[in-house]
Design a protein around this nucleic acid. Structure first.
Length: 194
DNA sequence: GCGACGATGGGCT
DNA sequence: GCCCATCGTCGCA
């Protein structure tokens, strides 16, 4: 295994810590033989069946089964009829938890990413969870894939850990109908925010 | 710059 | 039949 790739043990702990720890790591996508990559700068944690913002609130279904599986896998789902969203399965097998990758700083394969995000400025290429998947060509075909396999099509490498001074936390976004205390849990992490 | 809203389809009650 | 872990565009300032 490449020494740069984050091992499954990285994900095998509290998902909130994993969300924090993924800031500054490098998400790599091999698309048609070409390497595309970006630095993870925004994440959110979703933890367990009790968390009413987490898809696992409805229990284990065909859709959420991957979240109950081993840590270090990709949980990728389709929403709003048009967007794919990428998550990193965390915590021990059997406990449903995952980190939503909400934004990247584009780093490698910029020509391809630019073409996939045609007509938009660089700042708009990967500044949202749907945009990340659009930019890197991430779809449900990769659901359940191993993020710890450097020979796969999607994996995450150790890159540049982010110091506490550069991290901001806030409640998760896009979950307006969720009741407290879940609505206000500070489980969103942003690095080097504007 | 900002708020409203439509697109569009799968999952779940 | 309702609800989305969203995005891009439109209208208005």
């Amino acid at each position: 295994m490449s020494p740069r790739v984050l091992p499954a043990s990285f994900y095998d702990r509290d998902v909130v810590q994993v969300a924090r720890g993924l800031l500054g790591m490098r998400l790599v996508r091999i698309l048609e033989g070409q390497r595309l990559a970006g630095i993870i700068v925004e994440t959110e944690a979703y933890r367990g069946e009790d968390d009413l913002a987490c898809h696992a609130r409805a229990g284990k279904t065909a859709r959420t089964a991957v979240m109950y599986g081993p840590p270090g896998r990709a949980y990728i789902y389709f929403t709003y009829g048009m967007h794919w969203l990428l998550n990193c399965v965390s915590q021990p097998e059997g406990y449903p938890a995952a980190v939503l990758v909400r934004a990247l700083l584009p780093l490698e394969g910029l020509e391809v990413i630019s073409a996939r995000r045609a007509g938009r400025s660089k700042a708009q290429w990967c500044n949202g969870p749907g945009k990340v998947c659009q930019a890197l060509g991430v779809t449900g075909a990769l659901n359940g894939g191993d993020l710890c396999d450097p020979r796969g099509e999607l994996f995450i490498e150790l890159y540049q850990p982010v110091p506490e001074s550069a991290v901001q936390t806030s409640p998760r976004v896009g979950i307006d109908r969720v009741p407290e205390p879940w609505l206000s849990m500070p489980w969103r992490f942003v690095a080097y925010s504007h």
